[in-house]
Design a protein around this nucleic acid. Sequence first.
RNA 1: CGGAGCAUAGCGCAGCCUGGUAGCGCGAUUGGUUUGGGACCAAUAGGCCGAGGGUUCGAAUCCCUCUGCUCCGACCA
Length: 578
Amino acid sequence: MKMSQLAGRRLKEDPKDAKTVSHKYLVRGGYIRPVSAGIYSLLPIAKRIISKIEAIIREEMNAVDGQEVLMPVVLPADLWQESGRYDTVGAELLRFKDRNGKAMILGMTHEEAVVHLIRTEISSYKQLPVMVYQIQTKYRDEARPRAGLIRVREFTMKDAYSFHTDQASLDEYYKRVHAAYEKIYRRVGLTHVVSILSNSGMMGGSVSHEFMLLADCGEDSIFLSPDGKSYKANREVAVSDLKFEKKGEELPLEKIHTPGKKTIEEVADFLGVKADQTGKAVFYSDPEGKLIFAMIRGDFEVNETKLKNVLGISEMNFANDEQIRAAGAVPGYASPLGLDPARIRLVVDKSAANTSNLVVGANEADYHYRNFNFGRDLDAKDVLVTDIACVREGDPCPVTGEPLVFRHGIEIGNIFQLGTKYSKPMNCSYLDKDGKSQYMVMGCYGIGVGRTMASVIEDSHDDYGPIWPMSVAPWQVHVCALTPQKDGVGEAASKLVAELEALGVEVLYDDRGEKAGSMFSDADLIGIPFRVIVSPKSLAGGAAEFRLRSSRDTELIPLETAAAELARRVKSELEKYR
RNA sequence: CGGAGCAUAGCGCAGCCUGGUAGCGCGAUUGGUUUGGGACCAAUAGGCCGAGGGUUCGAAUCCCUCUGCUCCGACCA
């Protein structure tokens, strides 16, 4: 490919709103262009990288017996009504009507579509297990797209779905996919990916993992054991080994005047106690509008995911003051004391239940109680006591007991045991050995392709641009002709390019005759791992200069053998990513 | 969905407060001199100032409405 003909320009300046490294370089380097919020066109450089990532994914999915299919982007709403998700999924699902007024949707994930496909094609246990996958466009009407390709509305996703006779078969297959994912991320050159425990939502007992690239710009919060291996979990589900013990004598409940002191900090300061001697009340309302009262020790935050899972609900909002008052509590001075358990859904975190003599609200403006003791002051049998706390950095790891480490991550893939969540309502069944109808047990496995590309930049770049691993680089060798019109430089460079291409090497040839500075800056933004410079100087010695994108050291390679030598090095570099 | 901001040439911006011929830098085109980390000279092209309405003799500029985009937060199979 001649650079003089490459579609897409490089920009000298950072795009004004780009904050993350990958966003800046993708726009500056001429990889992507915004079309609308969270919707991008890919220029040739990005398209080539994406194709290579897809090829690696394809190979590894095929290696675990996956069969590639292609399902529609536009789906009839009734399929989603069948699974029940048409009503439970929020506004991210883009709904519209066709010319006949039929309700349609744009696919944001394809469980329904794949069940529709498989339930008519597979009917016997002899055909199971089976896995199908596709690499296809998804549309999610995100409320807030951000950071270039990290969070977008339209994107390419590899989504795979496996169907099994039973949980044991799913368990075994799930492990294979987990290993395949690790291989995919290694092959695309990502070096800081961890798989972590993630939220399984209302699935009850099902298992899921997220694959995270550890990166400061990531949106997800992760807790890791110090060795990075023993324990890895999303903040949504992370637990710690903190022990709570009631200590000392239970002192008598004492009502105290705390005028205008509403927050934990204010109350704790006012009374001269620490936050861990207070109890905090946090209110939500469930989808039916019933008040959820979460009580937790003052030094913890409520983990909303844990709380939702405990209550078995998928949605919940912060309650407003009116809702709180309606249940008999007083905002700022609330506690479970004296409330009617029938009117609220009370959940107490074990931190609050197992600490003695807490300061809690009195459900009366400007008053708190000292020496609240759960069990004594609140009947434990009416109350759900469990873990609804966010883990804090430094809390003891549940596996090793060492202080947990907090990191941000970019979610670049997930794998999920679905069980019969979709096969049951959508009647996706097979006949077992005894001729009995059984629901198929499902797993699903996703990888965001564009997000993976952006993540490679986050993981591999310097101050001048991305440094692509050979396995996904848009081209393998970047040949730069310095003053191509002089001293036969252009001819020598063209010859080298032709020889390389004849050996199957992918070459980007900078034939533009730009100044060295702008040529090298462009080359850095394109990030091809191998660079060859042909100039009058090197040509006089019958050689070309070779250097890596990741280094400024150069090496002279004789022109007669350059093509063969470079082809050999490309091949050997590619071997590292097999 | 809450909060904040922005919208003027391909890109980055100034002009707006205080209404009066549309500007700068980069980029592009042509010609010339150049060529080892974003050169120089000369010329040229390029704008319904996001859209609609209002005030005014006159609106990029003042007022109203709308739309789009970005950032922070909420949400996120």
